[in-house]
Write a protein that binds this DNA or RNA. Sequence first.
DNA 1: ACGATGGCTGTTAGCGGTAACATAGGCGAT
DNA 2: ATCGCCTATGTTACCGCTAACAGCCATCGT
Lengths: 344, 344
Amino acid sequence: MTKSPVIDPRRTLTLRDVSEASGVSEMTVSRVLRNRGDVSDATRERVLEAARTLGYVPNKIAGALASQRVNLVGVVIPSLSNMVFPEVMTGISETLEDTGLQPVVGVTHYSPEREESVIYEMLSWRPSGMIVAGLEHTDAARAMLAQAGIPIVEVMDIDGAAVDSAVGISHYRAGRQMADAILAAGYRRIAFLGTMMPNDHRARKRLQGFEEVLSRTGLALADREFYSGGSALLKGREMTAAVLNRSPDVDFLYYSNDMIGAGGLLHCLDRGIDVPGKVGLAGFNGVELLDGLPRKLATMDACRLEIGRRAAEIIAAKHPDGIIGGEVIELFPTLQPGDTIRRG
Amino acid sequence: MTKSPVIDPRRTLTLRDVSEASGVSEMTVSRVLRNRGDVSDATRERVLEAARTLGYVPNKIAGALASQRVNLVGVVIPSLSNMVFPEVMTGISETLEDTGLQPVVGVTHYSPEREESVIYEMLSWRPSGMIVAGLEHTDAARAMLAQAGIPIVEVMDIDGAAVDSAVGISHYRAGRQMADAILAAGYRRIAFLGTMMPNDHRARKRLQGFEEVLSRTGLALADREFYSGGSALLKGREMTAAVLNRSPDVDFLYYSNDMIGAGGLLHCLDRGIDVPGKVGLAGFNGVELLDGLPRKLATMDACRLEIGRRAAEIIAAKHPDGIIGGEVIELFPTLQPGDTIRRG
DNA sequence: ACGATGGCTGTTAGCGGTAACATAGGCGAT
DNA sequence: ATCGCCTATGTTACCGCTAACAGCCATCGT
């Protein structure tokens, strides 16, 4: 607006302002503020002093455009409201901390279309890398990621084809493993309780692995119950009540996540049901919340922190020039039997 | 690197590529992609087709620099791992959704220094607005925010001086209100259990209000216990056990958040303590987790969703030219007595 | 027929930095 | 003194896009 030479006191400052205030060229100021190249101590002091008193904040937009370098890493996750993704974020942040890279979060609410648009939006800021939850994306999203020319890490899941790198666990195998443990403990009439969401591919894969093991033993799920939305703990209670009413003879409840599992556990204890004698329970995730429950729910930890760390390491690794990528890192969750499965 | 005229197939695309592929000027392409200005339908189609087949993703860095407009809103919060801030985020996202603005999250881990650096980092991207949790900041951070020339909204708390606008509740008053309710129910030997963190100013203010009411009635806290880190639910149990051992005659436990309150409640129920007859309990926040507990913990909701919404509305409101700002919106939490305070 | 009008497209000049190169001294070795 | 070389600083040319303005052409009223 103001093209007049009159100095607008509310105009935001530029390098030129600092340069004039300290009597050196803009380039020198730039060098001081980025700690790059040789600058004499006297000059450095003068510049820093000027920048400080003016309250100069550099414009990274201009800097990024000129240098073709952006210190941002896009992180695309389905949700922030269940404990799992925040913990992945923690792992990412920790690891990125001393690399100068900064995570930027986008949330998709489990919608593929939203995911596509979030990815598009993020790529338009030309980040140095992208971390995306899951392997399932729209074709357009996959194409954009593949073309972006930056490291891409798909996290949480490794059952499928990755665009570039991947870090996660096999949910399919996790489901099988839990089924094995449950069968080994002698349970036979097993019910599944989980989310309705058709786009929660990881829960789907766990269930698939789980059912495969059952059917190979000549069994099938005795009952199943789905939910969506609401307080997971409360939903867990309600679903459990529904299942136990409908199928009084079930002897095991397999939940797609720990939160509803915890609700189910509380319900069983309320009803005075013998856990794990009459009914066993298991969840998934290994959330620390469980530590405070009256009885420890059987679960499998999803290696969330570790996944975040490893993903960030891949992004931060300066694959100098030749972008290598294409790593797939499988982590192995451990079964935590807790107190809700009969001990062999 | 490649200054040669040879086309690098991995070079990222620019407007020029789309312009050449569709036979119109860059400017026209830009207009099509932004839906701005008049473009004939035929041209529009041709451009969109070209952009789609090439897989062009605009460079917002260049766009932002040229237009001096950035569709980002910085959101600075202490943590993602307790349910409260994600819910504020939800309110913000919802409201920003149809404004073209996009939230960018930064996490401070309750450290003022980290907060300062996160704010600096964010301002250097020249966002359209900033939403920052709390009113307590370093002098430098406050100065940067004040000088930024964009709307600033400080959220959660209104007990103090705002840089620009503020949306939140009075935690001081919330503490007083809870104390009134507890005293009214006849409890007299009251203990406080809360976080150690010196930078959780809101918990501090609640406690301050709480103690003021007690002391005005000639009472003082019968005991107090602090924690930091770890599973809040478990910590709640442990702290509660410690307090009940040390001070067997307390008749009320006031927790600084619902999560430890829930742990405390579970502990009391385990021990078969008469709640709320012998011992009453109350927390703070109104997290939906509580709905699934065996007994509903008394709490006060912190209006988190609403705070997020109102803050985003202030940012999104196109205060055309004349930046008005300076609004302070106080919300009023409601006391939810639940089942853990004796009913008068 | 003619300027006025309006729809559509192109041209020019930056936005605020940084890479790359150029330059001015100062100093020791020859 | 001459040269080379290093240190400290300045100059120039963009990065990829958009605001602002300048054309051009068909249509329209008179």
